[in-house]
Nucleic acid binder design. Structure first.
Lengths: 208, 208
DNA sequence: CTTTTATGAATGAAGG
DNA sequence: CCTTCATTCATAAAAG
């Protein structure tokens, strides 16, 4: 039993830091050390990205990439140029920008997207890629349904214990993935990690 | 965005074991939402890095930028060392017993597994290993879809059932040449999200 | 260790 | 709105 827990010894290796308490088993919480590891990794990524972006801009000082869209992996010029309806992506895929806007709107007026609003949003998103009102409509419907399912699927709260874990009222997923779109922007603010990874200063705000 | 409270690593191990204790101290667990956010965040960084490194290599093939040398020294050491230790399990894997039960149920009521039925099945399978309703739901969905595809892929050479054109989608992806412009086109294939953040399957131990 | 496969999970779209 | 389907993505497991 517990086949899923049977991990190869390669992956089950102990961390170099000592484990922090030495529980011996994997729990769902992140210890300080794990948090630090995560933070370091993200910091590493941020550093790499900054350096590479800088280098990239230096190299491409003559070639402007602003006109190229990163998120457009499906409708890239390959298909539109010479391709002859080989595969044709039937399914709309929101670009990172569109997704960002959609999530923002979703966060604002939780649910109940008016038909008129749909039109506006569609027009707005049209500036960032091909999209239709149906897409927007479906997206909101799915988003809402998905959020609700997530709620009931993640009760994570323990029985009678009055868990005060999060005083969050909004359970819906507030994922705002910083899409790589900003890569081409000059405001390469790669320190987005602080939005999810609390530092020593920003921590302990809920402590009673 | 919610703030997390820093909690000593010693208390971390008590999270999973505890439960009904109405102590008053609450551990800081990462919810599925948070985990997903983190995972996506890092995946974004990884994607950026991958793209930029690729671009960088393409560009440096003609220009000597040895001075910069931000090619590969950064990623490996930290990532490979500390990443895998956090990763417990990323994907639910049904135990043979669970699989057997699932297949039996699938054979009985082909398709249309009601939500209520899902709960029952989940409870049933919980006796044989960790599992969640989502897992059961996905399993049935995949099972059904796969069966249907199997049939149309291998028509039991029955009667005049004409095998319609199988819209094979084997294209795109790496179709593009090494042109650096493809950097932003379809380099999304890289699966760097495996670095540290597991895909939480929202498994809870609520019973009854 | 690398590549391939099998399959769990995510998501856009359709039906009711 | 809620449920269901179809397609695609990502990853554990298997094959080499």
């Amino acid at each position: 039993m517990m086949e899923w827990e049977k991990q190869p010894p390669q992956q089950a290796e102990e961390l170099n830091g000592g484990g922090g308490g030495g529980g011996g088993m994997f729990v769902k919480v992140m210890t300080d050390e794990q948090m630090e590891v995560l933070r370091k990794q993200i910091a590493v990524y941020a550093t790499i990205c900054e350096q590479l972006v800088d280098l990239h801009k230096s190299l491409t000082s003559q070639n402007d990439f602003s006109g190229v869209r990163l998120g457009n992996l499906y409708c890239d010029p390959l298909i539109t140029s010479g391709a002859h309806k080989i595969t044709g992506r039937q399914r709309w895929t929101p670009t990172p920008i569109q997704l960002q806007i959609l999530e923002r709107i979703f966060d604002q007026g939780n649910g109940t997207p008016s038909k008129q609003k749909i039109k506006e949003i569609t027009t707005e998103l049209s500036q960032h890629g091909q999209i239709s009102e149906t897409n927007v409509y479906n997206w909101f419907q799915n988003r809402r349904a998905r959020s609700k399912r997530k709620q009931q699927a993640t009760p994570a709260n323990n029985g009678e214990s009055e868990v005060e874990t999060e005083a969050e009222s909004s359970n819906e997923k507030k994922t705002k993935p910083d899409e790589f779109q900003n890569l081409q922007s000059n405001s390469m603010d790669l320190h987005k990690s602080e939005s999810i990874l609390p530092t020593e200063d920003s921590s302990s705000k809920l402590s009673g």
